[in-house]
């Protein structure tokens, strides 16, 4: 037991590169087929979104011939692989560009909501007392608005834009994230290693950020995944209600809003964006499920 191994200065373990860790995580997903499917769906949409500018696509806003069927020939000799909509815009191009837009805004909005929500949550959970009362009360106020209604108010006041969506998602999600983080912190802060940090006189912020938060990451990653899904739904819903990202840029929700009344004779222009949306959200939910399953195993 007591044989000692000489080790030179390399105490801080070498961190693996982000790339390697990503593939390790993906390999882990093999253990959950459900999660794997989710990851693949998301990977597909992310790839599409990233490649959108490089793919041979029509301009999503270019008005060509309306109501073309799937695979119809375009006037310039190309093909409308997924047909065109009532204004004559290429549906394939609109779906792919729409994916880019919804993914960018959803990720950004979720990220902002997370930063705000986590800080609120650690503060409320760790400090307790008045800080907790105040933060929780503020959170309760925003939690008492049904999600869409909060968005409607914010859009009605600020006008429709991507930034409004970010604000709306932050107001609606941050309190929920705060509650989760607070709960996790309340549990974690009774651990002995927190007492150990306290008994060596660490500052509260050091304890919150270095000792507490890293240990809450498991459930938070799962939640972030689910929440990305919700945010996509929220953005699309706002678009559908006519309160989302402003036209004419492609937006899945708006595409649906416009296509549904005409669904009787142009079914594909309504089914396709609907399927795109459903698949992306399903991807997030399945991935979250898979991650939860794996994290519960050990």
């Amino acid at each position: 037991m007591t044989e000692t191994i000489k080790l030179d200065k390399e105490i801080p373990a070498k961190r693996e590169s982000g790339f390697k860790r990503f593939f390790k995580a993906l390999a882990l997903m093999r253990e959950s087929p459900v999660g794997m499917i989710g990851a693949l769906i998301i990977l597909f949409w992310v790839t599409m979104a990233v490649l959108a500018p490089f793919l041979p696509l029509y301009d999503p806003n270019a008005i060509m011939s309306p109501f073309q069927k799937i695979g119809a020939a375009a006037p310039d000799g190309g093909t409308f692989w997924l047909g065109t909509d009532h204004k004559g815009r290429d549906i394939l191009s609109r779906i792919i560009w729409g994916a880019q837009k919804v993914l960018i805004w959803a990720t950004f909005a979720t990220f902002v909501a997370y930063v705000v929500g986590m800080l609120m949550g650690v503060l409320a959970g760790y400090k307790g007392g008045w800080a907790d009362e105040i933060v929780s009360f503020v959170a309760n106020i925003f939690l008492s608005f049904p999600f869409i209604i909060l968005c409607i108010i914010i859009v009605a006041t600020l006008g429709a834009s991507g930034w409004t969506v970010v604000v709306a998602v932050t107001f609606a999600s941050a309190p929920q994230i705060m509650r989760i983080v607070r709960g996790l912190v309340l549990d974690l802060k009774t651990r002995d290693y927190i007492f150990a940090a306290q008994t060596r006189g660490e500052s509260p912020w050091y304890i919150m950020l270095v000792e507490l938060l890293p240990n809450a990451r498991g459930p938070l990653i799962v939640d972030a995944c689910l929440r990305l899904g919700y945010t996509v739904v929220a953005i699309a819903t706002l678009g559908f209600l006519g309160l989302g990202l402003p036209p004419p840029d492609p937006d899945w929700g708006l595409m649906l809003k416009e296509a549904v009344p005409l669904g009787a004779f142009a079914g594909h222009s309504m089914y396709l964006p609907a399927a795109a949306l459903a698949s992306l959200i399903l991807g997030f939910n399945l991935l979250a499920d898979g991650l939860r399953e794996i994290s519960l195993r050990d």
């Binding site: 651990r191 002995d192 290693y193 007492f195 150990a196 940090a197 008994t199 060596r200 000792e211 890293p214 240990n215």
Partner: peptide, 14 residues
């Protein structure tokens, strides 16, 4: 300084 009771939480797992 202090030595704590529960070996499972005495060290920070992260």
């Amino acid at each position: 300084q202090m030595v704590f009771q529960n070996p499972f939480d005495t060290l920070n797992p992260s």
